[in-house]
């Protein structure tokens, strides 16, 4: 069977990450760190206000990869990312992926999440086995 051709770019996913979403995520992901919520710790911290969970930002990227790759993303997808700056709430985040290479049936994408001003919040790579 011939492996499917990887998409050169993946349809971006854009979503507003506001405080209610972050609060909901804190419970769902079992991460109650007060820097993510409307707490004195968040306002006294280095960013002066709550910061979205990095994993919530990363979730948009995984959603974009799922949109493009379907079950292949679950069978053998991998991510390696670094956060470049905090996602200060509220923030509109766009997740993007562009094909970097394809070798031996594995497509590797350069990935990023950016804010509405185009500033990178997260960069890295995602790989998926196509067949």
């Amino acid at each position: 069977m011939t492996a499917p051709t990887p998409a050169p770019t993946i349809e971006p996913v854009t979503r507003l990450i506001d405080q209610p979403r972050v609060d909901h995520y804190a419970v769902a992901a079992r991460d109650p760190n007060p820097i993510h919520r409307e707490t004195p710790e968040a306002y006294a911290g280095p960013f002066g206000r709550p910061v979205a969970h990095g994993m919530l930002v990363l979730a948009l990227l995984s959603e974009a990869m799922t949109n493009a790759c379907g079950e292949a993303w679950e069978r053998g997808g991998s991510l390696k990312v670094r956060w470049r700056q905090p996602a200060l709430v509220p923030v509109e985040v766009t997740a993007r992926a562009t094909l970097r290479s394809e070798s031996d049936g594995v497509a590797t994408y350069d990935v990023m999440c950016e804010d509405a001003a185009g500033e990178a919040l997260l960069t890295g790579t995602a790989s998926v086995r196509l067949a």
Binding site: R21, A29, R30, L58, A59
Partner: peptide, 28 residues
Amino acid sequence: AYLEATGEPAARWGERVPPVMLSALMLA
């Protein structure tokens, strides 16, 4: 609860766990 929080459409997941949700719970 996770998909409501992230905003990702839920229907496609059926009986499966989104991969980055598992990663988040491994971190938890």
